[in-house]
Simulated assay, not measured.
Amino acid sequence: MKSYATGTLTLIAIVAVLGGALWLNAFKSRQNIVPISTLPRLITIEAQHPVRRDFVQRLRWFGQVETKSIVRINPLVDGRITSIEAQDGAHVRKGDVLFTLGGPRVAHEEALLSQRVLALESQVSRAETIVKTRLRAVAEKMVKREDLLTAQEHLDQLKCELSASKQRLAALKHALFVRSPMDGIFTNRRVHVGQEVDRGVHLADVISTGLRITARLFPPPGVSLVGKRVEVYGASGVETSGTVQRVMPERSPGGATVVWIEGDEIDDLLRPGEGVSGWIVLKTRKGVLSVPEDAVVHDEQDKAYVFVKNVKGYQKKAVEIGLEQGGWIEIVSGISIEDQVVVRGAYELFYRDFSKAYKVAD
């Protein structure tokens, strides 16, 4: 009887253990179930026709406004500044007198040259008389012809010296008036009236009224810049435009390409030394076929594709792309305006088995 009770208790214990294990396993299973509401939604695929848009490819640049040329004004002779004929910052024309020179050194040099000219003129007059006399004597065979040639040679030498002296005197008188070599603005004056100056010293500058922008940029390889239209934005809010006139053969220390930008509006609206920036318009496309950038997918070789919707499903098509702007991509070839292109869900389709057609959801 005791053995029977023991066996019964053992059986009950075994059943209880097995039941507890089953209940615990069922509880854990219920804990791993994710409710439907927490599952991610099914992929949404949207398609639409391509549209026609305008594309503009721009290249960013930064630069500074500069004068096209700056000329240093230097005296050609030593002297004293006796007058300054141009006001600082004034517009001057080519040939206008900027400074007048004078003083003891100029007077001394002018006196020496004048005396030299007078002396040579007297010598030339006497030499001419001698030549005439010997010419008659040769005709009368009173002197040798060699004597006439010697006198003539001496006369020619005196005439050359006289001509050179007159030229030096004229040059001195001309140099007393320091003139502007070009149209421009008189600026950066360094001397005052009454100051003694040496030949070649820096008196002032004349800068051209024409301006240009020296700009730095990093163009893609093979891009031609000369003649391209440029959008210019000044630090003061001024907006204008110009044209790339020249590309410098050497790069900047930072490796940038340096170009000169010029234009009539730049001359009128900007000032030398002003910092500017803007865009160079490299390409313009009008009314080209385009799709949103999310419609285009790329494979490991960077080839571009889109998915086109038809009655059987979604078909992958290779396309040639062009410019990109504002979230849109130019389609050069591969699809037409009548195609319905997947604009949402393209990558989800691409990473599936795209060797088969995908069924269109009912």
Rank of each mutant, 00 (worst) to 15 (best):
F62T: 13
A151M: 03
W23Y: 13
T243R: 10
L282C: 07
V197H: 07
I329H: 08
F62R: 11
V332F: 01
G184L: 03
F27Y: 08
G322C: 07
S355C: 00
G326K: 07
R179G: 02
T240A: 06
I45E: 07
A13R: 09
D339A: 06
D78W: 04
T214W: 02
Y233G: 00
G345R: 08
A5F: 14
G322E: 06
Y233W: 04
S236F: 01
L225A: 06
A318K: 11
K28R: 15
P50G: 09
Y347A: 11
G194M: 01
K303W: 02
V319T: 07
Q115W: 05
L42E: 15
A47S: 15
N188V: 01
I331L: 02
K283I: 00
T6Q: 14
L39I: 15
K283L: 04
G345E: 04
V106G: 12
V223Y: 07
R93H: 13
A357E: 14
F186N: 06
T243N: 06
Q167D: 13
D156Q: 15
V296K: 06
D54G: 13
V244K: 01
A16W: 08
P272T: 07
L172R: 14
T240S: 14
R80N: 12
M248W: 11
Q340P: 03
Q167V: 09
P40Q: 02
L225T: 10
R168P: 03
E265Q: 14
K356L: 08
P75R: 02
G63T: 11
E231L: 14
I43M: 02
G345F: 03
G95C: 11
E239D: 08
Q301W: 08
K144P: 09
I331C: 04
N188K: 09
E85T: 13
V259Y: 02
G184A: 08
V191N: 04
E128R: 13
A346M: 04
G7K: 13
A171Q: 13
I36L: 15
E161S: 12
G334C: 06
Y351L: 00
A90E: 15
V232Q: 05
H174T: 11
A137R: 11
V297T: 10
L289A: 05
S290V: 02
K309C: 00
Q340D: 12
L176A: 07
R80F: 01
Q157V: 08
I185Q: 11
K94H: 12
A318E: 14
A21S: 10
K286V: 14
V65D: 09
A357Q: 09
L203Q: 08
G95A: 12
D54W: 11
R271L: 05
G278D: 05
T44H: 12
T150I: 15
H108A: 12
A26R: 15
T82K: 05
I12F: 15
Y305M: 00
G210N: 14
H154Y: 05
V311A: 08
L176W: 00
H192E: 07
G194I: 00
V191H: 04
V97D: 09
E161H: 10
R105H: 09
N188S: 13
F99G: 04
A235M: 01
A318I: 02
H154R: 12
K166N: 06
I207S: 12
W328L: 01
Q64L: 02
E85G: 02
V34P: 10
A204G: 12
L9C: 05
